[in-house]
Nucleic acid binder design. Structure first.
Lengths: 337, 337
DNA sequence: TTGAAAGCGCTAACAC
DNA sequence: GTGTTAGCGCTTTCAA
């Protein structure tokens, strides 16, 4: 039973027809070749008897396309347990499902040389790439040399179309919200080196200044938002410019901070208000209710993944797609402010 | 810049050598063909000048293997936001990374006809499959006809190797734990139609009986573990056989139940003890602390994914692998019992 | 050490 | 309508 798999040739021979007659029946798109109903059923019978199924790799080689798209992040290796990745990839998958495409997660670790990554991305296994990276990342120059369709997530990158989110609008909402609550001294928690903050922080600063709030930025944090010595210091000192609200560039940093507060008996929002950014909607059924309902900006990452994949597939199909597609965000008032 | 990509032929021509000489240099495994150092560098130079990279699809066709494995679940469509899926897939990815393989998530939705799924799974795009399904699922018969290497997750399935978890041991631990706490009347929450419970429930029953506990099973639940009318009834009635502990076949059902308790003012664990099963370890940095620390059985799904992928890759490599690999679980005492 | 040639399994243009 | 044929880009055997 487990012999070599039959090829189109085998089927054609058994049905007593030529390869092209048989091919015409299995080819997705309408072939120019016409087959009489009688021949057709003879071929189908033969195929069934032999348990024939077309070989996708041969088809891909011939057609120069694989019906598969890829995802690459230039930040870290993909850990699917991280909400950002699983939400985004879930959206990408949805779009793939709808359009009967496949999603390839290439194997790469942090120390894979860039040429190797470039190779893997452009060696023909995928028809297009969803890219989560930032200006200056070495993969960009490589990809620009290539003809592989690419769409960027969350960041505009010269030479590629992008799906971006309304970081500015979200930052404004938070500034206005805190101002309305009477906060005047803010601590902004963000890493020094991550590019996403480059959108969120300046806008928040601008809006906060306009509203007459003072902002201190702490960028000496652990890469997962652990509380720094400077922060501890600032929180201890009870002076005039003691911050009353902690604005975090993302939810993770907010949760890290709240963990610290819990340990140290700091009451939220009575002693300090805390806000985040990203607002991964918990899965309606599968997630436990979080301990705090964070005030945050909800970014619809699932939807963003879907939109990006849909646009990419259009582009692969030869259509022009807009250079930027801005996805709106939503202010969510929780119990931490 | 963005011309057609050069082929091996192009490189060979430019270097003034034959295709096979050039091939010998790019082929992964040691070729029988030997090339002089001088020729070699001439070829490499030409390749570099033309920005040549081998076409993976052509290689796959020729080699009849793709360095890619797939994942299919026969239960529901893959929602990556569900901890079970993202933990398992994360483990699979880890193994793929380590061995420089790729992971393909095929596009399928619930109503895709089974033949279509079978086709997608066995049309040559993947070298092997990680399967999460149950006895009686129609895909099994199809896959058995094929030569595609398959490894099953969490369930023994005739004809395939499996990575299983110690459901029995975990169930025993819970029974003993509750017994030690003095519980004698238990409500067991499980769906009627899911096969995972077939391992957990009978074992729990056996152990509970041995210990002299009484168990009522409620299987008339919503598919996400919503509380049923019978359960409400049972909880209201305060008779002798009123359950004092609720054992859930998985964490999800436990969380659903606790949500109900919270709404109805039922105190845990004072009024009722609750236990789960699966215990997805929260990601150390990226997840908010859950509202309750559930007493549960921790199943190392990430590790299971890794082990399954490693075994599958061995099998693809031609090695014999054990028919069953049992992964131990760990009792975790939380604050809900 | 190098080159020629035969496929892997399929598609599509073209001739009958 | 149906069959023939030339590749897609690569690997590998075999002969030179």
């Amino acid at each position: 039973m487990k012999n070599k798999r039959p090829t189109l040739d085998d089927v054609a021979k058994r049905a007593g027809v030529s390869k092209s007659a048989a091919a015409a029946i299995f080819v997705q798109k309408q072939s120019t070749v016409r087959v009489s109903p009688e021949t057709r059923s003879r071929i189908l019978l033969a195929a069934q008897e032999m348990n024939y199924r077309p070989n996708a790799v041969a088809t891909s080689l011939r057609r120069q396309s694989t019906n598969t798209i890829g995802y690459y992040t230039g930040y870290v290796t993909v850990d699917l347990r991280v909400p950002f990745h699983n939400h985004l990839l879930n959206g990408i998958r949805q779009a793939c499902d709808e359009q009967k495409r496949h999603l390839l997660l290439q194997g790469t670790f942090p120390d894979t040389p860039i040429e190797q990554i470039y190779n893997d991305l452009t060696d023909g296994k995928i028809d297009g790439l969803i890219l989560h990276s930032h200006a200056g990342h070495p993969i960009l120059d490589y990809l620009r040399q290539d003809r592989l369709p690419v769409i960027s997530i969350a960041e505009k990158l010269a030479g590629f179309s992008a799906v971006t989110i309304d970081d500015a609008g979200g930052s404004n909402s938070i500034a206005e919200h805190l101002h309305a609550l009477g906060h005047r001294h803010i601590l902004y928690r963000a890493p020094g080196d991550v590019h996403t903050t480059s959108q969120r922080y300046p806008q928040f600063m601008t809006m906060a200044s306009e509203l007459g709030m003072e902002v201190v930025r702490d960028s000496h944090l652990g890469s997962f938002g652990e509380v720094s010595a400077m922060e501890e210091e600032l929180l201890r000192s009870g002076g005039r410019s003691h911050p009353t609200a902690i604005v975090c560039w993302n939810d993770l940093f907010a949760h890290q901070f709240m963990r610290h507060c819990k340990k140290n008996g700091i009451k939220i929002p009575d002693d300090l208000a805390v806000t985040g950014f990203d607002g991964y909607a918990p899965h309606p059924f599968f997630e436990a209710a979080p301990a705090y309902e964070l005030t945050t900006i909800r970014v619809p990452w699932v939807e963003i993944g879907r939109i990006a994949a849909q646009l990419l597939l259009k582009q692969i199909g030869g259509a022009e797609i807009p250079l930027e597609t801005l996805v709106p965000v939503e202010f969510v008032c929780g119990t931490t402010s």
